[in-house]
């Protein structure tokens, strides 16, 4: 099995995540799409690690996981606070700031 397929899969997942961020309106869903993107990158990293024959990529995947977790915590806190103060998680409803 060539690693190319993993790269394609990773690119696909990343794209799905990116499109999701752009088209979805629920902050939580957008947030999950971002996590999807990060994990797609992890897949890439691990694949490249294998292609390159070094473990660096896997170690990086570790770091990415940590960062993703930290992002989850921070993001959840922020989204929760806005959700609690205005009872909606829709990005569209956040419209106090306009041009």
């Amino acid at each position: 099995m060539t690693p190319t397929y993993y790269l394609l899969l990773s690119a696909l997942l990343f794209t799905i995540g990116a499109v999701g961020v752009l088209v979805r309106r629920n902050a939580i869903v957008v947030f999950m799409c971002i996590e999807l993107m990060l994990n797609a990158v992890n897949l890439s990293l691990v694949t490249f690690s294998r292609i390159n024959g070094s473990l660096d990529g896997q170690i990086m995947a570790f770091f990415v996981m940590v960062v993703a977790a930290a992002e989850v915590v921070v993001g959840l806190a922020i989204i929760m606070s806005i959700f609690r103060t205005r009872r909606t998680a829709s990005v569209d409803d956040s419209n106090l700031l306009k041009y």
């Binding site: 902050a27 993107m37 922020i78 989204i79 606070s81 700031l97």
Partner: peptide, 13 residues
């Protein structure tokens, strides 16, 4: 808070 959410989502993106 809205600023924070926007900053966060776009920043994470």
């Amino acid at each position: 808070q809205e600023a924070a959410v926007k900053y966060f989502l776009l920043g994470a993106f």
